[in-house]
Design a protein around this nucleic acid. Structure first.
Lengths: 344, 344
DNA sequence: ATGAAAGCGCTAACAA
DNA sequence: TTGTTAGCGCTTTCAT
């Protein structure tokens, strides 16, 4: 019965307990735990035993208090005002979250979920990101989102998912939307389509702009310069309407690229109703490889983005900025790929 | 130029700074900040001014260290082993997250996202939930998930989304799956269907069991005792297969209830291919009110769950447990409702 | 290589 | 009502 023998109380063990059990000072125990500085191998072993014996786990609040590091990254979903529910219902959101959480987990870190869908929410998100996280991952669903700029101005480390509409000194990951458009163009051209049309997305969305540009350029390269363009807003209904317009404008068309799957689904319905066989009369390609693309009959050929990988990479970029603050803004653009199914 | 006049340094202000600026002690400043104890109105005012002047915001790590409260709730997505990406791609997940985050935000709290898809991940989640959050919200995607039991045994405050397969002394929210099944039954019966079949979900899933039971009971009440049952696994493909079986078994059927929308989508395809007009020859009802339900033509009549409200309520239950630990486990079952569209 | 000691910013007894 | 003080658990100089 010398020092603190058996039941010191039902309290969660602290570094002090470990030190005592190992017969060393708290400082030494800390060094062992953090694997820093130099400690005698023998002592190190004793400390490790003590850790195992006591079941010690570091208290992160205490660490944060002294280190100014939280081990947490804020994942900010930024929607237009009051769009909370809508933002989260999009499977995209979940895939991004999955990529981020998985990546952070490998590094012993966590993600806290923030929602920025009003001016106040944006301020709060900035504040929380600054004070209770080490940095932020920003996912905007609409163009001209003021959030990225806010973070840049406040000097809070942040990385964007998708290129911002206006130039900003901030890192981001994105997919090559233009490359995706080109993939679709080549696929249509390769299968012999010559009277081609496209259902483009909103004209103020960088992603939509690039998909269209890449698509048109690729066709031009293939000697198919003229493309009928109708605009949609990424809903199935707008896809129906656009397809209807297109059919009226160019009844003889034989290939269509829709800037997302939902619009492609709408287009498919109109084509079917118009008695056009897909893909034999008209080939059709979507974008996103979303669930609806797999559910249509015929199944939708589409362009896929490596969302999880992008999210993971976005996370590692942020961690780099945290480790090496002087790192200049970096952007990484991922390659999309064609998912050949039945409509093209 | 008396005390700390202008630029005390570019350091984030602490309570000490506020106290100094207001000419009071740190304790008084703390009382004002936390609105606790009794403080002279005049001093209170001076402290508030000082807070505004310094731009003070409490340091949460320091608070956590002394309070043992993190202001954070762990949102644990629990999938079968290695199913990370799949879990997150489900829109359900996002809707739950949205409900939780919104509810927490109103109370000045945050959610940290955890993924429990392996034994190690489950242990880690438990540990993180215990050490870095005040409690946990558990969302299981598969039956017989060991996670809830783990939390119960560890005594970590937790609330489940959906009733656990085995009885457990733990709070949960759920939707009345049986009520939903009955809603579908009544709808079919009301529109005159008499030769009714159902595509049930996995026999080991409480939700699937209840949907089927509620459906059958309601039909029985209406004097339609016999129901053809085929099983699916909640995918569109399984829905196709089940519908094919059903059509073979009961070629004259005139109404079908599928236990989820995806299977209903599959069924719809088979019915169309079989030349059955929907809803005129065969009426069809799904469950979930998911995106695919809105995309089919005809649009799918379905049963909707108030997911966001359920998630929010799950959160408030957890907060109640945190405030009043002796609160016994509570369960709240929400009413689903019928979303009448075109297939029934 | 190791330990003593000084905080990190805050809350809560306890005194006054 | 207010202030003093003792920690919460940890890291990190600075001596030794």
């Amino acid at each position: 019965m010398t020092k603190t023998p058996a039941q010191p109380a039902r309290r969660t063990p602290t570094l002090e307990d470990v030190a005592k059990a190992a017969g060393v000072s708290r400082a030494t125990a800390s060094r062992v735990v953090n694997d820093v500085g130099t400690v005698d191998p023998a002592l190190r072993l004793r400390v490790h035993d003590a850790i195992a014996a006591t079941g010690y786990v570091p208290n992160s609040a205490a660490r944060t208090l002294v280190n100014r590091r939280t081990g947490t990254v804020a994942l900010v979903m930024s929607g237009s005002d009051g769009s909370a529910e809508q933002v989260f219902a999009d499977p995209f959101f979940g895939r991004i979250t999955g990529g981020v959480v998985t990546c952070l987990r490998d590094r012993g870190m966590r993600a806290t979920m923030l929602l920025a869908d009003s001016d106040k929410a944006r301020r709060d998100a900035l504040d929380t990101a600054r004070r209770e996280s080490d940095g932020a991952l920003l996912v905007s669903t609409h163009p001209n989102d003021p959030l990225p700029q806010l973070f840049v101005e406040a000097g809070v480390p942040a990385v964007l998912f998708a290129r911002p509409s206006s130039m900003l000194p901030i890192s981001f990951v994105d997919v090559g939307h233009d490359v995706g458009g080109a993939l679709a163009a080549d696929r249509l051209a390769d299968r012999g389509c010559r009277r081609i049309a496209t259902i483009a997305g909103p004209a103020d969305l960088p992603a939509a702009i690039d998909r269209l540009a890449g698509f048109e350029r690729a066709l031009q390269r293939r000697g198919i310069p003229y493309v009928h363009v109708a605009r949609g807003n990424f809903t199935a209904e707008s896809g129906e309407q656009a397809m209807t317009e297109l059919l009226a404008q160019a009844p003889d068309l034989d290939g269509v690229f829709a800037a997302n799957d939902l619009m492609a689904v709408g287009a498919l319905r109109v084509l079917r109703d118009a008695g056009r066989a897909v893909p034999d009369d008209v080939a059709l390609i979507g974008f996103d490889d979303s669930q609806p693309a797999r559910l249509t009959r015929p199944r939708l050929t589409t362009i896929s983005q490596p969302v999880e990988a992008m999210a993971a990479h976005m996370t590692t970029i942020l961690l780099t900025h945290l480790t090496t603050p002087e790192t200049p803004p970096t952007s990484v653009v991922f390659d999309p790929h064609l998912v050949p199914r039945e409509t093209a």
